[in-house]
Amino acid sequence: MRIARSLFALRSLLASALCVCATSVALAQAPNEAALAAFGGFTGLSKMTEDFVERVQKNPRIGRFFKEADTERIQAMLTDLFCDVLGGGCKYQGKSMQAVHANMKVASADFNVLAEELQNALTAANVPFADQNKLIAKLAPMHRDIVEK
């Protein structure tokens, strides 16, 4: 626990150090391509996410949640989120999962349908099964922030 906490502190320290450097300066984001290799690198992950968002939007059960949504921005932000949880060197800076899903009344079954569509998109992108599971395992805990009880 203590280790985890100090790691966290170190991370925030690093993050704030980076922020100081980044102030007013354009920094090229350098994704860690090796961590994203199974997903086709950052570009591959980005393409897969675009396909995923399109699948979700067309889905008869959960498409309604995305009817008025800015799908292009969702695609961009989600790519960053996926890249972040995969250790791909990106930093998700969007709103919290809780904040973006507030008042949407997402049911557990909706969440599962979304997870299935993610698997479909990953399979279509030829991501190996083990790597699919790696990503899904990282996203699964978000269930509690997204689904309304």
């Binding site: 922020c19 980044a22 102030t23 354009a26 570009t43």
Partner: peptide
């Protein structure tokens, strides 16, 4: 992907 950049704060 062709030109990622960021101008924070």
């Amino acid at each position: 992907s062709s030109r990622p950049f960021e101008i924070a704060v």
